[in-house]
Amino acid sequence: MLEISGLRKRFAGAPGMPEGKQALDGIGFAVRPGEMFGFVGANGAGKSTTMRIVMGVLKPDTGTVTWRGAPVTYADRQRFGYMPEERGLYQKMRAGEQIEYFGRLRGLSRDRARKSSEELLERLGLTERRDSSVESLSLGNQQRVQLAVALVHDPELLILDEPFSGLDPIAVEALATVLQERCRGGVPVIFSSHQLELVERLCDSVGIVSAGRMMASGTVSDLRAAAGGSLRVVVRDPAPGWADGLQGEVSVQGNRHVLVTEHGDDQEILRRAVKAGHVEHFGVEQPTLTEIFKEAVA
């Protein structure tokens, strides 16, 4: 549904940096209906710039953004839900009033905006804070209000910049559950995050960006399969020197020896392990998203 192709963006230089900064250098990916896409990269990698271009806050130097096969328009963006990294809430306004206000800005009638606001307050555990000013809320509850603002008009696409930043585990689970529900309803969700374990758990697909370039993208399972895996063998109370001559690394954890290797005959390794002691584990383990990320941006 959403396709981003060949985005390039250079920002004008500052004093001492006349050449400027190449923020994006050919970024491209697609997000399908009901898919949760994790956008990961270091600070300054280009994630927020990409999201701002999709939302029309910035214009690319080159490249395209299409929605349902056509160039994205202002009317399209009115049906998107956006949660910027720099939160845009009115601090003196009450939480419920604020969600309803943004619903009206998105074109909802007063009655529909109020109904949607009440539903989201209940769904996000904010009913008791409906009449509290935003500035009096905890960071986690402010995040929930910001998410409610992005959801109030029942968007067709969600774009969330660091939505889980600074949240406690309970708040993370509350937000994650709401996003998963939207995905099950067919809404594509794009979110950026530095919490790679969370991205790996929630996302169908991932894009790894570094210095404005897409270093890797695809489903989490495809990325892990493409990265290969390591054979991990755990032997309890093994005979001394059982792994001598085998490639890989052996670590000692109490009375257990752990061999991790990417080379050698696995059947020969298994025979030696069985002969040496009690084999507690023998199997190929694929890398985590964190390990894939480190390799991609190295």
Rank of each mutant, 00 (worst) to 15 (best):
K115E: 15
V149W: 02
E128Q: 13
V57H: 05
Q22G: 02
F282G: 08
V258P: 13
S136Y: 09
R77C: 00
Y90A: 02
R213I: 00
T288A: 01
D266S: 13
E3H: 10
S210Q: 12
H278W: 07
E156R: 12
R130S: 11
V199Q: 03
V235I: 12
S193V: 03
L246C: 11
E181G: 14
L7F: 06
K47H: 14
L124H: 10
A30M: 04
D161T: 11
R224Q: 15
Q142M: 10
E156K: 10
T127E: 15
L167R: 13
F80P: 03
V258E: 06
P287E: 13
G283H: 08
A216R: 15
R213P: 08
T127F: 06
E19L: 09
G245R: 06
A243K: 03
L121E: 09
L105H: 10
R114C: 01
Q267G: 10
R112D: 15
Y90P: 07
D244I: 07
V258H: 06
T50H: 05
P33L: 01
V152H: 04
T49C: 11
L24G: 05
G277T: 10
R68M: 07
S165Y: 10
G140V: 02
L24D: 09
G88F: 01
I159W: 09
L105P: 08
G96M: 08
L157Q: 07
L7V: 08
